[in-house]
């Protein structure tokens, strides 16, 4: 069972999720965030706070997003941890509207 960030986060990075993570397991590159499955405790605190519903619990990952499990696991450990809220990317509001949220 893993919790993963998926493509909705790209160009968005609202970072609300990192403020509620009890163990600090989010990592970021310039584009989006990833969860380190080795550290994540699957508590789901981050799932409801993401304004673009980019985060899925293991049981709920749609088939066409399953590849994100591997992407999160591969990228997270090599990127810096992000624990504090940052400003969303300039493209964030546009992306959010395009996704219909």
């Amino acid at each position: 069972m893993t919790t993963v960030v998926t493509d909705n986060c790209e160009k968005c990075r609202f970072t609300d999720c990192v403020t509620v993570c009890p163990v600090g397991c989010f990592h970021a590159d310039g584009n989006m965030l990833y969860i380190d499955p080795e550290v994540c405790i699957d508590c789901s605190a981050c799932v409801p706070v993401c304004p673009v519903h980019a985060i899925f619990e293991g049981d709920d990952i749609p088939d066409d997003k399953k590849h994100w499990i591997q992407i999160n696991a591969e990228r997270a450990p090599n990127l810096p941890v992000i624990e504090d809220k940052e400003d969303p990317l300039p493209t964030a509001e546009e992306k959010k509207a395009a996704l219909g949220y």
Partner: peptide, 11 residues
Amino acid sequence: GIIGTNRADSV
């Protein structure tokens, strides 16, 4: 709220 909720709250 759950454990992590308290992190944002304490910040």
